[in-house]
Design a protein around this nucleic acid. Structure first.
Lengths: 101, 101
DNA sequence: ACACTATTTGGCTATATTACCAAATATGCA
DNA sequence: TGCATATTTGGTAATATAGCCAAATAGTGT
């Protein structure tokens, strides 16, 4: 099988994937993605589950939003976040199988 | 469903996953993982496919190795790298489906 | 031992990421 | 209008990451 060299156009493909991986690559954000699997949640609820400054959590949510991993909707004073890409959380299950964990 | 707070022990789980995501979160490394799907390859072969300093490539390989994503074996002058976790590359296919790409 | 090749390591600078605090913004209600 | 609550934004210091160069290491053959 012929392997393509890493040129500019191929690089673009990987860069878009990297954007997703970077957005996921933080324990708090991975946790947020995980709890959003249970359903839409407002910032205040997420805040209660995580022992960090609210502004820090808000910034993590912004990272996830900018990467397209979650969507958000404002309702009154609250902002509700929804998981958009449940797929992304699958590989870890798969990994655990590979390692017979 | 009851959601667990992000405490120290839960954090540990996510940190180990983050280590994997961080190792993947670079275009060159993602490319390397992709080409290693085709089979074991020595550094010199990988080097030929990527237009970067060999030392940079070697460092990327070290990152992948330290995260357990690839293994390596020295044979004479060459070091051969092998993909250990093909699973990890699946979610992107899944994503493309979700987005109807 | 010497020269040659493949790979890794160390050092440096530039850039990116994170967390906390304070302040700003937006909404709802009296 | 004025106040309270929810969320975001800006600033800043600490830490981590990336890429290049030079040098070190390791193996092979003469």
């Amino acid at each position: 099988m012929q392997i393509e060299k890493l040129d500019t156009s191929l690089l673009k493909k990987y860069e878009s994937r990297v954007a997703i991986l970077k957005a996921m690559a933080h324990p708090t954000r991975l946790y947020i993605l995980d709890i959003l699997k249970e359903g839409t949640m407002c910032v205040c609820e997420i805040d209660r589950l995580i022992d960090s400054d609210t502004s820090t959590i808000s910034k993590h949510l912004a990272v996830l939003f900018n990467a397209g991993l979650v969507s958000r909707e404002k309702k009154g004073l609250n902002v509700f976040y929804t998981l958009e890409t449940p797929c992304l959380l699958l590989p870890f299950k798969c990994l655990e199988k590979e390692n017979n964990v």
